[in-house]
């Protein structure tokens, strides 16, 4: 890819890359630096980039993701500190337990958003990352797996755990609102 074309196309995704960096780092200054480094590294390899149908965006995500992992390793000076990125059992898709089955007609999703934001903030970076690529960027499991360079089962597992954590965080709200969980036998009685 020519330099001018790269700049044009890559900068179109600046917001998305920044969003990912922010979710990973949780610090605006660190996120900005991660984004900048991502673009410079991408530029270096722009000529070797091959269009394969996914466009340039997943490629930028992958660079940002890898840079973040490298940083965390460096900061921790112990590779195990980010072991979760690599150690998750790729065959595991997470427990197959049901999420809360609330009476959806009663749930005020606008009101949920603030509580949801706080719950998302409490997630680990890798869970936030998967959640972002899934919920905001609208990527398929396979696409997320490609970006994170991890098995699809790991992606499904992370998404499941993240969603379960969010659902749990919303549990007090459900009770406050008196919404019935059809899985909760005690409440049915």
């Amino acid at each position: 890819m020519q330099r001018a074309e790269f700049e044009l196309r890559a900068l179109e995704h600046l917001d998305a890359v920044h969003r990912l960096a922010l979710q990973l780092t949780r610090r605006p200054d660190e996120a900005a630096d991660l984004v900048q480094e991502t673009y410079l590294r991408a530029l270096r390899s722009a000529e070797s980039f091959e269009e394969r149908g996914g466009g340039i965006r997943p490629w930028l995500f992958t660079i940002a993701h890898n840079l973040f992992i490298t940083r965390r390793k460096r900061e921790a000076r112990a590779p195990s500190a980010v072991g979760e990125f690599f150690d998750a059992d790729p065959r595991s898709a997470g427990p197959d337990e049901p999420p809360p089955a609330w009476d959806l007609s009663s749930l005020d999703w606008e009101h949920v958003d603030e509580r949801l934001k706080r719950a998302i903030d409490d997630l680990s970076p890798e869970h936030r990352e998967a959640l972002l690529l899934w919920g905001v960027e609208g990527m398929k499991y396979r696409e997320i797996a490609d970006v994170l360079e991890t098995p699809i089962g790991t992606v499904m597992s992370r998404l499941h755990r993240a969603r379960r954590a969010l659902a749990a965080a919303l549990e007090p709200m459900r009770r406050e609102m008196g919404i019935v969980d059809r899985n909760d036998k005690t409440e049915d009685q």
Binding site: D15, V17, Q36, W109, V112, V136
Partner: peptide
């Protein structure tokens, strides 16, 4: 999923960052 999307959407990259990256490139 929709709620997650709204919560994580953010406000986009700051103009200062965009200018810095363009300059760096």
């Amino acid at each position: 999923r929709d709620a997650v999307g709204r919560s994580m959407q953010g406000n986009g990259a700051p103009a200062e960052l965009r200018a810095r990256i363009e300059a760096a490139l």
